[in-house]
Amino acid sequence: MPSSSLGELLAAVVARAVVDFEDRNAYVRGGSAVHAVATVRWLGDLEVPAPLCHVGVSGGELAALRPTTAPVTCRRCLRKQGADELAALPSTEQLPLFPFRR
């Protein structure tokens, strides 16, 4: 039975994640917003796909991030992409009347 080093196993996981998110957006398990994807440093020198807005992802758990072809709805991601976030949101999304009051 061949044995691999931990570094090789992690590199394989990262390579798979990079392929899964190529030309894709993402949503975080349990969330409703669709995020743009960028790479971030994960462990050592390994870089993995993550939300562009840097929203937390379950302690860095790669499986908590899911690829999607749906358009980005996260306002912070849209802002970082330089988009007018209100114009870029799908027209079917209802925006809150008073977003700062809770």
Rank of each mutant, 00 (worst) to 15 (best):
5 S>C: 01
6 L>W: 01
6 L>N: 07
7 G>V: 00
8 E>C: 01
10 L>R: 13
11 A>H: 05
12 A>M: 10
12 A>Q: 15
14 V>H: 05
14 V>A: 14
15 A>I: 02
15 A>C: 02
16 R>H: 11
17 A>G: 00
20 D>S: 13
21 F>E: 05
21 F>I: 08
21 F>T: 02
23 D>E: 15
25 N>Q: 12
26 A>F: 14
27 Y>P: 01
27 Y>S: 07
28 V>L: 13
28 V>S: 01
29 R>S: 11
32 S>T: 10
32 S>G: 12
32 S>E: 13
33 A>N: 12
34 V>Q: 06
34 V>I: 15
35 H>D: 12
35 H>E: 10
39 T>H: 14
42 W>S: 04
43 L>H: 12
43 L>C: 09
44 G>Y: 09
44 G>H: 06
45 D>L: 13
46 L>T: 04
47 E>H: 15
47 E>C: 11
49 P>H: 08
49 P>K: 09
50 A>Q: 03
51 P>G: 10
51 P>C: 05
52 L>C: 08
52 L>G: 06
55 V>Y: 06
55 V>M: 11
55 V>K: 09
55 V>E: 13
55 V>H: 05
56 G>H: 12
58 S>M: 07
59 G>M: 09
61 E>K: 10
61 E>V: 11
65 L>H: 10
66 R>V: 09
67 P>V: 02
69 T>K: 12
69 T>V: 11
70 A>H: 10
70 A>T: 02
71 P>C: 06
71 P>Y: 05
73 T>A: 04
74 C>N: 08
74 C>K: 08
75 R>E: 13
75 R>G: 04
77 C>W: 06
78 L>V: 06
79 R>H: 02
80 K>L: 15
83 A>V: 01
83 A>D: 07
83 A>M: 12
84 D>T: 03
85 E>V: 08
87 A>I: 04
87 A>D: 13
87 A>W: 00
89 L>Q: 05
91 S>E: 14
91 S>L: 08
93 E>W: 12
94 Q>A: 13
97 L>I: 06
97 L>N: 01
97 L>R: 10
